[in-house]
Write a protein that binds this DNA or RNA. Structure first.
Length: 291
DNA sequence: GGCCAGGCCTGAT
DNA sequence: ATCAGGCATGGC
């Protein structure tokens, strides 16, 4: 990969295993929107970024070399060798090979742990467009105004302190539905007990998973998503309705409870369970397999 | 109008 | 430990 700096842009040449559509539309993030020109604009770490692909180049617009090195390099997980991950998964079984071939450009973003905690509480029994809307509402009302890009205003995701200003009713007004009280409780928990998300990151996967479930609104699946997308726990295996279909259609798990499917997936794919899950999720959701 | 969505909580067994 | 039933909201 070659990194070139231009006016307000970073160009990544000879980059492999990177496709903005696969990465930003595979359900792991909720704050990226597709522009009319096919590029994606989103917010992370208090910055607005636009991403697009041109042949074999990735163009990061509205940034500079300093932010690329300090923020986006890690955010897009560019230090990781996805070719070897895909090779290992593809050799595991034919279904995984098909899933990896289909979502070849997926990378697991290194997102903010606190943002993942609240975002995936909102995700429970919800749909992705509705989740995005609720998170945008929360960011607009309680986050910081970051600026404008292509005529639209962007806001940061609120800190625990900022979100603690919201009442349950105000959270309901953000279209969080019945999850309003969970968000309120979790935020109070973090503030009142001075919890540091870094402490969860420092735990081993099993402990982290168990501790996250102590928050209201966080069950096994939501805990796995927070650990996988916000805490670098790549052996997590979130089982949602789509992965449930995968396990039933591809892995003979017809009569298994969700909790047993989770353990089964972790046993099958080991330390790469999270990557396997993400390729499979994107594959079956796009193909609508099992629906 | 019924069903479902990146499920979780509560209460009953 | 496991299993119903309920739950906001909106698209199909």
């Amino acid at each position: 990969m070659i990194v070139e700096e231009r006016e307000n842009k970073i160009i990544l040449k000879d980059i492999i295993d990177f496709d903005p559509v696969h990465i930003l539309d595979c359900g792991q993030c909720f704050r990226w929107t597709k522009e009319e020109d096919g590029s994606y604009t989103g917010v992370a770490k208090g910055k607005i970024l636009n991403v697009r692909k041109n042949d074999n180049e990735i163009i990061l617009d509205n940034t500079n070399i300093s932010d690329f090195e300090n923020i986006w390099y890690d955010y897009f997980d560019l230090a990781r060798d996805y070719s070897s991950i895909k090779k290992e998964l593809a050799s595991h079984d034919e279904n995984l090979r098909a899933a990896v071939d289909f979502g070849w450009g997926i990378r697991i973003l290194q997102q903010d742990a606190w943002e993942m905690l609240i975002s995936f509480i909102i995700s429970s029994n919800n749909r992705i467009p509705m989740i995005q809307r609720a998170i945008n509402n929360i960011s607009e009302r309680y986050g910081d105004k970051l600026g404008e890009y292509k005529g639209k205003t962007y806001y940061s995701f609120p800190t625990p302190e900022q979100l603690s200003k919201a009442s349950i009713e105000e959270l309901r007004d953000c279209k969080t539905g019945f999850r309003d009280k969970y968000i309120f409780s979790t935020t109070r928990d973090v503030i009142d007990n001075k919890l540091d998300m870094q402490d969860f990151i420092d735990m081993n996967s099993a402990t982290c998973h168990k501790e996250l479930m102590k928050f209201k609104g966080v069950g096994a699946k939501v805990s796995d998503c927070i650990a996988l997308f916000g805490m670098g726990k790549y052996d997590s295996f979130p089982v949602d309705v789509w992965v449930k279909r995968v396990m039933q259609e591809f892995y003979n798990a017809e009569d298994m409870s969700l909790l047993k499917m989770r353990k089964y997936g972790m046993d099958l794919f080991g330390e790469k369970a999270g990557f396997a899950q993400q390729y499979l999720f994107y594959y079956v959701r796009e193909m609508e397999i099992g629906k």
